[in-house]
Design a protein around this nucleic acid. Structure first.
Lengths: 205, 205
DNA sequence: CGCGGAAATTGACGGGCCGTCACTTTTGTG
DNA sequence: CACAAAAGTGACGGCCCGTCAATTTCCGCG
């Protein structure tokens, strides 16, 4: 009756491959967090696993590619959250607030995981992986969807999508610098700004 | 009567030092543009000058430091432009539009200089040099100034300043991707968004 | 002037990390 | 069980880094 594991890859080969890949990614997370992305070396990463140095190159071509894989992972995990926010929302206002809140919570959670100095630790790197692009497209889709349905004014989504993303990234970073970080207030601020401009972003005191 | 050059450093030593530093920065600009920041090496940079490899380290500690110096230079050149925009403006609306327009023009000009592939060439790196921080402060000052004078609603400049900067950076990058890039329309978009939210950012067609 | 020392330049050198590759070990198949 | 394909291993050559002892350049002073 032990047919539970019928879906996962069965061959020892495939299982080992998946496990190794995961081990490398996990070690990379830790190493990047501890040494910082720039200072970290491929050897540092592989030393964090039971594998030999050459094996690293069976899985990734470089440190950069590992970082991209991590970013990709993050994006892959976040996209359904974003999509859910879009489907759940009744109007554009709700969508925007929900999406931003989800993002800020996600950022907070990701940065809480490991590596104490939550602050300057970010790799200071922008990435354009497929999943990253997908996020971008998801945002754009949400916007155009709203325009289509007359929920938002006709505007330049070529500018608006990157604009929102840039806004969210920086406000997210600013949020992390606070103690305690408060995703709700950050989301209120950002959504208010986008929806109504400065008047919408005003503090309610 | 030749008292024109009384201000510049006179000693041969000091002149050479300044010239070498400039030579390194100039070479670095070219090398970063051609090879990309990641691929560039200190040797590549120094090869672009008449200096020996060891001399590089009399001026900078690393490739990163050169990049920061370049960023710092840019920020130093831009700050007075930004300040001028603030002093020239009669109201907040004008200030914001003026500042954004100045920024987009600046970005365009800086990227036109050299290195054909204007696109993916950016070092993909955020920097926090003193001058960079000064820009940040200048933005924040402009905002708080406006609040003080009742020109803008009371709001959270801890979020607004980075938010505006993130917005401007991303919209600026989006602008560069267009042909031809149009600083005016980008500034209209961004200023409209910040001032009135989506309604303000709408296309006028 | 020219001399002495400080300042700056030079490039060779040791050290570390990179990516490869010939060899070994493990896994799947007939 | 034998054999081929796949994956793992770590030693190796190459490149780049940052340093430093030797050398050159510059400046001040008698």
């Amino acid at each position: 009756m032990s047919e539970t594991a019928a879906i996962e890859p069965v061959g020892k080969r495939e299982r080992a491959k998946a496990a190794n890949r995961e081990a490398i990614l996990k070690a990379a997370r830790r190493v990047f967090a501890q040494l910082g992305y720039e200072a970290a070396t491929v050897r540092d990463i592989i030393r964090g696993t039971a594998l030999a140095s050459g094996t690293f190159y069976n899985y990734f071509r470089s440190k950069e590619e590992v970082f991209e894989a991590l970013a990709d992972d993050g994006a892959r995990r976040f996209r359904p959250i974003l999509r859910a926010a879009r489907e759940r929302a009744k109007d554009f206002e709700q969508y925007l607030y929900g999406a931003l809140l989800a993002y800020f919570r996600f950022v907070l959670e990701e940065n809480r995981h490991e590596g104490r100095p939550v602050d300057e630790r970010q790799p200071h790197l922008r990435t354009d992986t497929p999943e990253m692009t997908a996020i971008y497209e998801e945002v754009r889709l949400g916007i155009e969807d709203a325009i289509e349905r007359g929920l938002a004014p006709r505007l330049d989504s070529d500018y608006l999508a990157p604009g929102c993303i840039g806004l969210a990234q920086e406000v997210g970073a600013a949020m992390l610098r606070r103690s305690p970080p408060d995703p709700e207030s950050a989301a209120r601020f950002a959504a208010g700004l986008v929806l109504k401009g400065l008047p919408g972003a005003s503090r309610k005191e």
